[in-house]
């Protein structure tokens, strides 16, 4: 239970910091300007550091962990997506992972079925819950462009319209808000409801979930219930987007809770499991074409060995060999 409570308390304390700071400390400028820029810098440099570090690691051979038939003789049917032989199909494999979580689709679950019988079954819930969580979060973040841009580009406008097409509540209800909350709840319960998962889960698994949950709950509360004045928010967001430093008009403390938790999230990404958002593109088992039979992969670490052929050896020792009565090839 400590693994669950610690991150929960951490998120609550983190949420209280800006609330106290703005309500009692009048630290608006710190939470509106200084901390967001600091978080942005930490995110950018941290990601750069992690990715450059990974990019510099040598990957001398391709790693064909595939689930399909490799390209072979013409009459053998190949599986070009599972076992791509060219970079284009390998890129498709990475993208299908990024957008559709294909590996997770293969997820299986082992269960004891009626006594001592271990049964493996296909288990799609994690795939579905993960997909719902990531897509709704992505759409929510893209929709936030309405704060940062003076005029919305048409694709984002369309996305926004589609998201509130149910046309219920004022302000219009966004479907992704409900989906995000439901998915986060499912992902937390998934870890809590099963003894195996409880042992496997660490506090660093719960913390991002609670953090996202808190950001979403505060955002949803700001939109539908407690409300904030959007005008100074928009002005602040546009200031941040244009790297300005002007002091914002007063905004409700709840907004700063939202913004500060987002800043914590941004700064946390490079140093946590959330860095997978960049790392997934570098997975060697996904992004390398499997052409190990078609192409010769030379080990770049082979030392530069000076080889000596038998002919050279005989040239050097021919006279001595003849004297000793050893047969030679060339007289």
């Amino acid at each position: 239970m400590k693994k669950v409570l610690k991150p929960l308390i951490a998120v609550i304390v983190l949420a209280l910091i800006p609330w106290l700071g703005v309500t009692y400390g009048k630290l608006d400028y710190v939470f509106a300007i200084i901390i967001p820029y600091a978080a942005g810098v930490i995110l950018a440099l941290g990601m750069l550091f992690r990715l450059v570090d990974w990019l510099r690691r040598p990957v001398p051979f391709n790693i064909p962990t595939t689930c399909g038939q490799e390209k072979s003789l013409d009459w053998v049917k190949t599986n070009t997506l599972e076992c791509p032989s060219n970079p284009f199909m390998a890129a498709l494999r990475v993208l299908s992972e990024v957008f559709l979580f294909r590996s997770l689709f293969r997820n299986t679950k082992a269960e004891m079925a009626g006594g001592p019988k271990l049964v493996y079954g296909s288990h799609k819930w994690l795939w579905l819950g993960g997909l719902a969580f990531h897509w709704s979060m992505l759409i929510i973040v893209i929709r936030h462009a309405r704060f940062f841009l003076a005029t919305l580009p048409v694709p984002i406008e369309l996305l926004d319209t589609a998201d509130r097409f149910l046309d219920v509540t004022v302000p219009a209800f966004y479907i992704t808000d409900a989906v995000a909350l439901a998915a986060i709840t499912f992902l937390v319960l998934r870890r809590l409801s099963d003894a195996k998962m409880r042992i496997l889960s660490l506090s660093t698994d719960y913390f991002p979930l609670f953090l996202f949950g808190a950001i979403a709950i505060v955002g949803i509360s700001m939109r539908y219930v407690t409300k904030v004045n959007i005008m100074p928010v928009k002005a602040l967001a546009m200031t941040l987007a244009s790297f300005g430093f002007s002091e914002p008009e007063p905004i409700g403390a709840l907004f700063y809770v939202h913004l500060f938790l987002v800043c914590v999230l941004l700064a946390y990404i490079p140093f946590s499991k959330l860095v997978h958002m960049g790392g997934i593109f570098l997975s060697p088992t996904r992004n390398l074409p499997n052409n190990s039979r078609a192409k010769w992969h030379k080990n770049p670490w082979n030392p530069d060995i000076k080889f000596r052929t038998y002919a050279e050896y005989e040239d050097e020792f021919r006279e001595k060999m003849k004297k000793a009565g050893i047969p030679v090839e060339k007289q």
Binding site: R146, F147, L149, T151, L152, D167, V170, P171, A172, I230, M231, K234
Partner: peptide
């Protein structure tokens, strides 16, 4: 003025 600035389209 505000609705345009905040990119909201009330019905």
């Amino acid at each position: 003025m505000c609705h345009e600035f905040a990119n909201v389209k009330p019905t």
